[in-house]
Design a protein around this nucleic acid. Sequence first.
DNA 1: CTGTTAGCGCCTTCAT
DNA 2: ATGAAGGCGCTAACAG
Lengths: 347, 347
Amino acid sequence: MNKETPPSAYTLKDIAREAGVSVATVDRVLHGRSGVRADTARRVSEAVARHDFRPLRAGAELSRARAMKFALVMPSGENIFMQLIRDQVAGMSGWLASRRVAVETIITDVFNPAVLAQTLESLTGRFDGVAVVALDHQNVRAAVDDLVEGGMFVVTLVSDVPGSRRHYYVGVDNVAAGRTAGALIGRLTVARTGKIGVIAGSRLLRDHAERIFGFQQVIGLEYPNLKMIEVVEGGDKDDLNETLMVKLIAEHPDLIGVYNVGAGTPGVGAAIAKAGRENHVVFIAHDFTPYTRRCLLRGIIDAIISQDPGHEAMSAIRLLLGLVRREPALAEQEKIRIGIIMRDNLP
Amino acid sequence: MNKETPPSAYTLKDIAREAGVSVATVDRVLHGRSGVRADTARRVSEAVARHDFRPLRAGAELSRARAMKFALVMPSGENIFMQLIRDQVAGMSGWLASRRVAVETIITDVFNPAVLAQTLESLTGRFDGVAVVALDHQNVRAAVDDLVEGGMFVVTLVSDVPGSRRHYYVGVDNVAAGRTAGALIGRLTVARTGKIGVIAGSRLLRDHAERIFGFQQVIGLEYPNLKMIEVVEGGDKDDLNETLMVKLIAEHPDLIGVYNVGAGTPGVGAAIAKAGRENHVVFIAHDFTPYTRRCLLRGIIDAIISQDPGHEAMSAIRLLLGLVRREPALAEQEKIRIGIIMRDNLP
DNA sequence: CTGTTAGCGCCTTCAT
DNA sequence: ATGAAGGCGCTAACAG
């Protein structure tokens, strides 16, 4: 028998009585609102501390309940990871509804800074908060800053705009993700000597650039036996990626590893499978999907770097909710982990 | 612009008015309570469905608010992972207090079935729910069943009692965890030929037994170049583990991999470091701690199989809360992932 | 500066 | 089988 946390069914009223004030005063002290004599405040604080009193959330929530509307700005296109996030949000409908939170998904061309910026601007006043898969570009940064300036709460999702005034970024450390990919390729190719191919969507996307940076770091510094081929770009498209991969295989007989930085993994996988190279080429890609799951089981993909879409969607919404309600920052509680998924630890 | 979930600030009262009944009746229908004519129920259901109405959680919570008391039964001893879980629970104190939930941690000798069973029996009537790091033994199973029989809600934590009537198990699939360890050793030793050592706490602990089983499966079937040495048991103790590991290194010059199934990792690590074998021996262990973090950075440990203690503690409490409140099962939402942590994806 | 009071939405007796 | 009404704990508007 050891530690004990007493139930403490105290209420505001009890504390008020004990401190010899009214509930309103206790409430003021509890929330640090002004208009309380220092001396009175002290008496209240003491009573609160004495019983380690915490206001019951349900009461607070009920009394301020208000319908809220959030916008979720996501890329158009076939990107499966984004699709998964949308699915997760759809699956949260019960959770959202019972809290009077509405989420409107807005699909736009995130790859075009002007379009994205304009989409963001158009949100002004229509929402209580915005979660956006951002693009690191000055127009977008300006749009985000304008929104925040106007009192909107903004979190970036998956892809950040570092210099902006967004309240939070929900997503992984992409440099670390790239390093992880590099370390996996390095370790799994063992001591073999050969070339490593890297396929990205676009080096202009901050998350892709960061992953490549981290990847190069590790390969360059720690695996002198591996030589990186120039990064090629396939716009996250399956077909283009397949073409690129076929070419890589053809031109580099000593290719022993491939890192697909963004989406479009099916294209890369198809090229490897058709060439019958799954046993010679260590293939690392991002994001756990039905397709990558199959590839892991068949040995086409050796490891997946993952971030949990459900977790990210939930985090973004929770953070926005907390901001709107002005609750103390649960911030770094919500940090997103970089997952490594191999054949034997499939979720 | 795409999907839309309307705010729907409807309340029970609105639905009642629309269905031409009172709020009490709507409440009855919503919760499937008896005493409503089929025809009336249908009218209500229709109104509910028409607006996709969900009762506001805060209201429901407030009206049923009740102080609750949960017991957390954990092993005595130095096991760091358990310590981390306790820390996490301590860190949840604000969350718990604002929901009027008290958690009493009860330390007991989980390795002794009789003691554990008796501890469990002693909980009867004193708590609303129990989270227990269990031992798979018939006495324990009987004790768990008795508790459930008596109306207590029970979840097992980290280590399960499969045949029992516990409501949930919160923890990872340990066979898969063992397989993951096996796959990592297999892949990271590359094509080298040699022996693999396995150190467990006790083969009588179900989680250890399952991990060993999964590990053997993979090593035996897929890596003919690796030969497993007989499993040795160190009772999760640092000092004993160190002695065992020193012996393994001395007796098997061709040792190229070690899997520490349970706790006591510092002992194993020390032996490897002192022998200067960190570059020859692939070392896989469980649980991310300050110590294993250091080992990852220094290259002593190659990969950690992790389960998030914070996540587990939170899950256990949330599940118990849901059970007590008789909320629809959020069950498999709470599934715990097997994490792989290497030097570059440290949390 | 401080207190009073009317809700917030839901659940639950207690009547009918 | 159904309805009316009080209360859960907290907040905020309004008095003083």
